[in-house]
Design a protein around this nucleic acid. Structure first.
Length: 111
RNA sequence: UAAAUAAUCCAGAUGAUCGCCACCCUUCGCAUGCUUUGCAUGCUACGGGUGGAGGAAAGUCCGAACACCAUUGGUCCAGCUUAGCUGGAUGGGUAAUUGGUAACGCCAACUGGCUCUAGAGUGAUCCAGAGUCAAGACAAGUGCAACAGAAAAUACUCCUUCCGCCCUAGGCGGAUAAGGGUGAAAUUGUCAGAUAAUUAGCUGACACGUUAGCUUGGUGACAAGCUAAACGAGGUAAACUCUACUCGGUGAAAGGUUAAAUAGGUCAAGCUUAGCUUGACGGGUAAACCGCUUGAGCUCAUGAGCAAUCAUGGGUCUAGAUAGAUGAUCAUCACUUCUCGCGUAAGCGAGGAUGACAGAAUUCGGCUUAUAAGAUUGUUUAGACU
RNA sequence: UGCCGGAUCGUCUAAUGGUAGGACUCUGGUUUUUGGUACCAGCUAUCUAGGUUCGAGUCCUAGUCCGGCAG
């Protein structure tokens, strides 16, 4: 789990989704926004349309967060980032998900 | 013994490392206050300690607690002798009985119906066990019943049967409901009489059943028995309806405390005096905090009760997040299963899988649905032995 | 979190508890030199599982999926 200062609150998520810059892959997309602070914060959004079971949704959240914690030394500071999943994310392999995350972050020049 | 199925129990254990949440403690730092060099409170950081999902947390199908709103009692309308009555219109829910409960559509016991199995009996039937039942009323009224059938309900006559006439292929009229046939369903049965005639509740007797009354037993549903110059009444209420009982609305995004901002308001001061500025009060939005976890709690013992459950006493505190914590990896043991190798076999060794359903969101009581492996019990089937 | 509504041929849409109908589509045939049009015939459905009933698309219960509303 991410520490509290690296998470986003409800308001921040809404502003990021409304004003952020979007980048897509077939099963995942991100919205990012500069926040003028020392930290880069993340959150993961999974709709109940992706899967009806909360256990499956929590597992995907944990997989993404664990990968972000492992890579946290490489990030630039000062971004708010929201990961939003699409239906189909449950069927792919873990390596594909991780490479998609790296692709999206590098495309935004955060890494 | 094996398999299937149903119910109940259980929902791997120990240790290490890396992370997350809550609370507590030590130290350092910062801020505020004070009796001023220390103490108190708060916050941040490092470190340490303790605790951290379920039997269904799920579905949201019922019920309750709690909070606010409305309010003379389900709702609406009207009236008046106006704080309680009357009248009218109009809904939702439940349904044998008794008990339990905060309450329930839940639970327990019991009664009755139906189904299955075993036993007794020539048989009707009786009895035991298991399962199951939205199990008030169709004998208040209304409605409905396709096709088939003569007829689907204040009855009726297709074939057959009986009588009379024409006259003998058959037709006409009358009688009957025993038999046939149709259908999911067809007007209780036996005997005798009456009749032109027969196997007609048309009449009588008996049996069966229903209803009513009485007696006995039971808290009661009900059971057993008796009586009737009462009756023979088809089905359907998960059809309308009737009867009895019962029911305010909104949901923790309820609501409460503090409170930036904005509009409009009151007061005071100052300045130019149509007014403006500042401050205070009040106002109440964002936000924060509370609500929030000590509760119809868990557990043990004793007692009451057939049981559900209740009473008394002892012990105990056991998640509280806010886009949402409770996770990941490794090792060992336990457990089941799969693969490979060795072995006649028992077994041994190596490797893999932890096995299912599934994640708190105000809290409880139920119901429903989903559940791998293992354990216990019941039922069914198959096999072996006696 | 709370609360509503719906599910019928491939698509759209009917059906009072009593043979699931129609339109478009599709398939085959006739007409035409061919295609279209027209005509004829055919294929194809009650979301799932139980119950009530003689008999459920319809009534009741449970589940699955879809859609909507509040804030």
């Amino acid at each position: 789990m991410l520490p509290k200062n690296r998470r986003l609150t409800n308001e921040e998520i809404e502003t990021v989704i409304r004003k952020g810059v979007t980048n897509h892959t077939p099963f995942l997309y991100i919205k990012s926004l500069l926040n003028n602070s020392e930290n880069t914060s993340f959150t993961v959004v999974i709709s109940s349309k992706v899967n009806k079971k909360a256990v499956v949704r929590n597992k995907i959240k944990r997989q993404i967060r664990a990968f972000l914690i492992r890579k946290k030394g490489q990030f630039k500071n000062g971004y708010n980032i929201v990961f939003i999943t699409k239906p189909g994310v449950t069927n792919i392999k873990l390596e594909d998900l991780q490479s998609a995350i790296l692709y999206l972050l590098s495309k935004n020049k955060i890494i």
